[in-house]
Simulated scan of single mutants.
Amino acid sequence: MFPEYRDLISRLKIQDEHFARIFHRHNELDQQIKNMEAGILASHGSEVEQLKKEKLQLKDSLYLILKKAANA
């Protein structure tokens, strides 16, 4: 995710607690969705879709933080 910001992501995960929390939650959701789609975890289609929406919202938030930090 966002390879162009790899160094900045590493720095923000250490320096910005809010960013680190959002980043961690995004990764948790990503793994949960993968497990549901692979049949490792039980799920309903609507549940997966809701998790995907939450994951996308987190990704948008991460991107905005990264853009702001890159321009600072």
Rank of each mutant, 00 (worst) to 15 (best):
P3S: 05
E4M: 05
R6N: 09
R6W: 04
R6M: 05
R6G: 00
D7Y: 01
D7I: 00
D7H: 02
L8M: 10
I9Y: 05
I9K: 12
S10K: 15
S10R: 15
R11V: 07
R11L: 13
R11P: 03
L12C: 00
I14M: 07
I14C: 00
D16I: 00
D16P: 01
E17C: 00
H18P: 00
H18M: 06
F19V: 03
A20M: 07
A20S: 13
R21C: 10
I22M: 12
I22S: 04
I22L: 15
I22D: 05
I22C: 09
F23N: 08
F23V: 02
R25Y: 03
H26A: 14
N27M: 15
E28L: 09
E28F: 02
L29A: 08
L29T: 08
D30V: 00
Q31T: 14
Q31H: 10
Q32D: 12
Q32L: 14
Q32M: 13
I33P: 11
I33E: 05
K34R: 14
N35W: 04
M36R: 11
E37I: 04
E37M: 09
A38M: 13
G39M: 09
G39V: 10
L41T: 07
A42I: 03
A42S: 10
A42F: 02
A42L: 08
A42K: 13
H44V: 13
H44F: 13
G45L: 06
S46M: 06
E47Q: 14
V48P: 02
V48Y: 01
E49Q: 15
Q50C: 08
Q50V: 11
K52P: 07
K52H: 04
E54N: 04
E54A: 06
K55T: 04
L56V: 09
L56T: 09
L58K: 05
D60T: 06
D60P: 00
S61L: 11
L62D: 01
Y63F: 13
Y63Q: 12
Y63K: 11
L64Q: 12
L64D: 12
I65T: 07
L66C: 02
K68R: 15
A70H: 10
A70N: 11
N71D: 12
N71F: 06
A72S: 13
